[in-house]
């Protein structure tokens, strides 16, 4: 299992974590390459559907990286994200995936080394948890139908 590389999706706020990742790159900091970043206009953009979708598509772990509390560009986006992540952790426990596969981190755009540290820390956590119990091959795509307008 030691050579297993978990699939990790990081939803990163454009104003902090995404810039911090840039800084981590400029500083030539090493962090696990299995972290796939998804840029978000604000951490407040994330919702349970997006995070569950990541797990449906085979993520072993997901984290949301948001601005430091009180520093959200849109005032409360990171607070809202925190509440949603907290709620979804409970749902993931109910589902059986486990809430510890989802986490929320707060950092600022100047924290390049913290960004790399978070990536290493979370990867280590997921490696210790092992692969997600969900096999994406058993997930059928969602069918969404809408009411016909009359």
């Amino acid at each position: 299992m030691n050579d297993w590389h978990p699939k990790i999706v990081a939803f990163c706020c454009y104003y902090c974590a995404y810039a911090a990742a840039d800084l981590a790159g400029s500083l030539r900091l090493q962090y696990p390459a299995n972290v796939r970043m998804v840029e978000q206009p604000c951490s407040g953009k994330i919702d349970p559907l997006i995070l569950l979708r990541a797990f449906e598509e085979g993520a072993d772990g997901v984290y949301v990286a948001a601005c430091v509390e009180g520093d959200c560009h849109f005032l409360k986006g990171n607070i809202r994200a925190k509440q949603r992540v907290h709620q979804l952790k409970r749902l993931l426990d109910e589902i059986g995936i486990g809430g510890q596969r989802l986490e929320m981190y707060n950092l600022s755009s100047s924290m390049g080394s913290r960004f790399a540290e978070v990536a290493r820390e979370f990867t280590a956590r997921i490696r210790s948890l092992g692969p997600s119990p969900v096999n994406p091959e058993n997930i059928k795509p969602a069918v969404r139908l809408t009411e016909e307008k009359r």
């Binding site: 349970p48 559907l49 569950l52 979708r53 797990f55 449906e56 749902l91 109910e94 589902i95 059986g96 995936i97 119990p133 969900v134 096999n135 994406p136 058993n138 997930i139 059928k140 969602a142 969404r144």
Partner: peptide
């Protein structure tokens, strides 16, 4: 949407979809 996703994820762990 959330309930559907949660049920799909729950079921997927049983080896069925």
């Amino acid at each position: 949407g959330v309930l559907a996703a949660a049920l799909r994820l729950l079921r997927a762990q049983t080896g069925r979809s």
